[in-house]
Each structure stands twice: as C-alpha cells, then as structure tokens.
Design a binder for these strands. Sequence first.
DNA 1: GAAATACGCAAGTTTATGGTTGCGCTTTTC
DNA 2: GAAAAGCGCAACCATAAACTTGCGTATTTC
Lengths: 111, 111
Amino acid sequence: MSLTSEPALAKAAPVFAALGDETRLTIVGRLAADGPLSIARLTDGTGVTRQAITKHLEVLAGAGLVHGARHGREHIWTLETGQLSDARRYLELVSQRWDDALDSLRRFVED
Amino acid sequence: MSLTSEPALAKAAPVFAALGDETRLTIVGRLAADGPLSIARLTDGTGVTRQAITKHLEVLAGAGLVHGARHGREHIWTLETGQLSDARRYLELVSQRWDDALDSLRRFVED
DNA sequence: GAAATACGCAAGTTTATGGTTGCGCTTTTC
DNA sequence: GAAAAGCGCAACCATAAACTTGCGTATTTC
C-alpha cells in the first residue's frame, strides 16, 4: 500500500471524514457498546433532532460504517466493522512508515 | 474509556476530521514516507495551490498531527505520531466493544 | 545586487455541512 | 379505532471548509 497515490487513500479519507464529527462518533460508540439501535433510541441523549441523527446515519452509511434496515415502524442501524479495521490498518501503516523514515534519517546522520 | 460521553471522544473527533480529507491524508502519507518536508515540496504533485497546502497543514497542526518550524526561507513540517496512535487505539476499542456486544447478543439468543 | 525561491497575510468565492421546522404516512399500543 | 410512536421527504438557513488570486517580504542563489 502506498499511502499517497493509491486508491487506498481515496477509500480511507471518507471513513475518517465520517468519524470526524462528535455526534457521529457518539453514534458509532453507542452502536458498538449497545448493539443495533433505532433512530429514536440513538437520538436520546444527544442534543439534536431526530432528523439530524438520520442525516448522520446516512453519512456513516455512505462511508460503509453502518447499515440500516426497517423493522416494522422503526429503522434499526447496525455497526459495520470492516471499514473500521481498514482505517485502523491505515493508521498503523502510517506509523510504521514514519518509524522507517526516522530510521533512515538516523542512519544517514550517523554516516 | 467510555467511547461516548468521555472527553476521549472530544479529542478523537478533531483528529479524524483532520484525516478526513484526501489532500491532507496525502500530506500525512508523504511526511510519513519521506520525512519532514517544506511547504513547496509538499505542494509538488498535488493539483492545488501552495496556499491551500498551507491551510491544510494548519488544520493538521490544530489536530496535533504535525508541527512546523521555519528554517531560513522555508517552513519545514514534521509528522507527530502521538495523536495518530490515540486515534488508532480508539478504533481498536470500538471494534472490541462491538465484539463484546455481539457476544452478549449471542449468549442472550442461546438462552 | 538582481533574479529566483519560499513564504505569510488578506480578501473573496463557492460549495458542503450540520442543523432546523413542517407535514404526511405507516405501524403499534390501549 | 383513536392516540401515540417512529420515520421519511422536502425546504430552508447559517456557518464552515476548500481553494483561489493578489501582493508584500525575507532568503538564497548566481
């Protein structure tokens, strides 16, 4: 993976963007802790409207972080950990590259 | 760490937000791979203006992901891996919570 | 010391984002 | 079967985000 020009970047950015909002991060946290929840449940506690939560869920879904399905009168949303793992691996790789770069630099200075 | 109401969330969101842009992710990737670079160098290859890159660097700096220092006529920017690790750990924790939730759900169904 | 390089500051534009309110429809609940 | 709960759709608003252009200044380079 190249970290820059590769498509991995184009995939990772939207995921990070989706996680880059406090309300959405709260939603992800609650889904992770409590399991699948309805929109009404997810709205509880947040200071915002149900519509706002709905929009956030759509953003998260667009990034592949959650998926929803209607059951009766409620819409249940579930966490999707695939993209989450990819994002985590991306960060690991960046850290790794950085360590390598520091190593090269150190060796260069020592010469 | 609680994933929702704790301050960990308020810290993590800005970091993810900073990473949630293709141009900025490219910058982080290049810094990780090549080591510290000047604004002019970081601008090369990207389709945007030097000013745009400067703004992106300020956003990254605001999230604690990079720091810069002027050397002569150039401004050299360096990656900061601390926040990166924190973000990674946050994602790990979310995945962990999710697995736990699934486990509880499975046990509940089996009863 | 003139030309080129590397920036910073400021103003301006456009589009996206996060949020709201209002209304109507379906599904439960009592 | 009326009331309540849970949503979806659409319009609208304010602010922030991503970039640009223009210009002035310090630092190298030749």
